[in-house]
Design a protein around this nucleic acid. Structure first.
Length: 288
DNA sequence: TTTGGGTTTGCCAAGCCGTC
DNA sequence: GACGGCTTGGCAAACCCAAA
């Protein structure tokens, strides 16, 4: 059996469908660029790897992904004895050299929480439509799009204090980790106003809150352009988490509500972001 | 225990097409 | 022409793990 086919089967057993697709695409892109037939993959040299990096028009992040795939492929071949261990070491070393040469590092953008005026403009535009309800759900729950796809009224419950909680079972969350999060906004008043609305919407979830994920994404993208506001569905999640932080929830709790696997993610991404914001606020205060 | 870099995977953008 | 659905590849968020 062809080595590429063997690797594909291995990926299908050990990786997600998305990763399998991404890695296979990377290898195919490599073959196309170098105009190599797949059986020549075992003969690939350092010069070929350099040629790919030199001629590629991919962004640093994508090039990194492609080299991750190549490294994974050759590690697979070496472990099964299809290539010499020394050959794999040479390939691995070359990939490291290329990364160094090209300064390949993933650039992380800071999360963007939406401001009050941006939210007003967005909700003014979608007022009265189903998108208004869905956007509010994203904003008050911090739900991810992938989680929203599988949501139903069964995932919401009202607690004794009169606010809704979202209970996401492990099978529908990103990292297969059960998550419980309160549906709250920037203030108590807004939270209770939303709770009343949600109570009505949940009577007929499909009619009030169900939109196809693809349509929701495209609609949001177009709205972002129309309004001249740089936002996406994920911006609502950033805003939800930022609201929790601004309200003084401790990082361990924000981590649980956000569904992060560890608190480092929460602190690194959101608290660092908030420290800058705090500095800006202090500067503003001192100017008064 | 912390941190930096690598890996995995979800999200977004763009283009095409159909419908009104 | 405007709007919305679908597909696909690249980008970036989030997680993981080894080294210090």
């Amino acid at each position: 059996m062809e080595l590429l086919e063997l690797w594909r089967r291995h990926l299908e057993k050990t990786k997600s469908e998305r990763t399998t697709i991404t890695y296979l695409n990377a290898i195919n892109s490599f073959l196309r660029k170098l105009q190599l037939p797949s059986h020549k993959l075992v003969e690939v040299s350092s010069a070929d790897l350099y040629q790919y990096a030199d001629s590629s028009e991919l962004s640093p992040a994508s090039l990194l992904t492609h080299f991750s795939a190549l490294r994974h492929f050759y590690r697979f071949l070496a472990r099964r004895g299809y290539i010499e261990k020394e050959k794999y070491s040479e390939i691995e070393e070359t990939i490291e050299d290329i990364k160094e040469d090209y300064g390949l590092k993933v650039i992380h953008r800071k999360p963007k929480a939406l401001s009050k005026s941006e939210l007003e403009k967005i909700f003014q535009k979608v007022k009265g439509s189903k998108y208004e309800n869905v956007y509010k759900l994203f904003l008050y729950s911090g739900v991810r799009l992938s989680e929203y796809k599988n949501l139903s009224s069964d995932h919401f419950f009202l607690d004794k204090s009169g606010i809704y909680w979202l209970h996401l079972p492990a099978e529908i969350t990103k990292r297969k980790k059960e998550r419980i999060a309160p549906l709250i906004g920037p203030t108590k008043e807004e939270t209770f106003r939303f709770t009343q609305e949600l109570s009505r919407w949940l009577e007929d979830y499909d009619a009030n809150l169900r939109v196809k994920a693809g349509s929701l994404q495209v609609y949001t993208n177009r709205l972002s352009k129309r309004l001249g506001i740089d936002f996406s569905l994920h911006s609502f999640r950033h805003t939800y988490i930022t609201n929790l932080i601004n309200q003084g929830f401790p990082a361990e709790l924000v981590k649980e509500f956000a569904g992060h696997a560890n608190v480092k993610t929460t602190i690194d991404i959101y608290y660092r972001f908030n420290q800058e914001r705090a500095k800006a606020l202090v500067d503003e205060f001192l100017k008064r």
